[in-house]
Design a protein around this nucleic acid. Sequence first.
DNA 1: GAAAACTGCAACATCAATGTAGCGGTTATT
DNA 2: AATAACCGCTACATTGATGTTGCAGTTTTC
Lengths: 191, 191
Amino acid sequence: MATRARPLRADAERSVRAILEAAERVLAGNPAASMEQIAEAAGVARTTIHRRFASRQALLGAMAETAVRQLGEAIEASRPEAVPPVVALHQITANVLRVKVNWAFALNQQDEPDSPTARAQEEIARRCLELLGRAQRDGMLDADADLAWVRRVYYALIGETLHGEDARTDPDVLAARIVDTLLNGSGPRLR
Amino acid sequence: MATRARPLRADAERSVRAILEAAERVLAGNPAASMEQIAEAAGVARTTIHRRFASRQALLGAMAETAVRQLGEAIEASRPEAVPPVVALHQITANVLRVKVNWAFALNQQDEPDSPTARAQEEIARRCLELLGRAQRDGMLDADADLAWVRRVYYALIGETLHGEDARTDPDVLAARIVDTLLNGSGPRLR
DNA sequence: GAAAACTGCAACATCAATGTAGCGGTTATT
DNA sequence: AATAACCGCTACATTGATGTTGCAGTTTTC
């Protein structure tokens, strides 16, 4: 969302939030939903959406921006560089799940190349790889593991977790399952 | 695709195939592509598409039908019930990849409930679970593993593999990576 | 409490996609 | 070679989404 010269009035700010959140809810269920449906879900008139967002595309962009920002904050709050990889991985996963449950659609749109959100996503992927590198040096990951593939699997596990009916399950429990699956797979274990 | 009373003429049959394959190619790149774009990619006039498929929805349905049929054949060809689970899992995965590379879009549409394609997909999922059950009894999967979750992870790994630039890599190699990741994860291994 | 900002509503313009119909020429089938 | 099926093309109807504008009434803000 573009930064504005004058700050919005309080009620307008609420409208914007309501629109963004309603858009996420509606589009998650039906990506081809019309502005009309979004407006209805947000409890505002369709023209009000157009007042704040010049076009449908602009709305989608704003959704991506807020979602990516929240995602970044969630990662930051986990202090990934300050704690041992095992802890960081669990913590980040849980926090990321908390955000992604609410912004699944916005974060799944592939943002157009060279957009700020695309850069932010790349930055996040880069830091994820760094973390995995540290985990590997600590012996948490196999020395021969292909980190790029590990990262893709990690993302896929998060995505799959969000698809299911797991939305109400405690994110920490879900995170534990993700990390466990990522590290140990589903084969037999030594006891 | 609905079965027809009179068989199509040879050239018409070719047109239908060209349309279905072009639609897959185009829609995989842009799910919102117009009939016009699909027609152009297929090398036919837009009206010809409407001659064979009453509506856009009908075209999508036909795509799903042919894709699911091919998927079923690919699984059948692997004789999952006739060989040990380890072999079956590898073989099925490779064969499924071969089909899914070419029908990623068609197979990712969620088909409407109670449609024949939906039933077919459920049937496939059921057989997948059966196979995993056999694998578990053979000690290939941990005795405590949650098979429903294992199946979801398995599907997710296949999906992730198709996203990458791996389209040209040998499906058997990709299948090996999928099965290995599914069973062993990425953690350290005993040597 | 006055000014400015915001909203709902109704009306309108635009536009792209979808789907239909018919004609004339081409191609497969027998 | 006769017949029927098929295709491209042009033209048209319809529809639904998008985006704009202006006004009248309400809510913040200072």
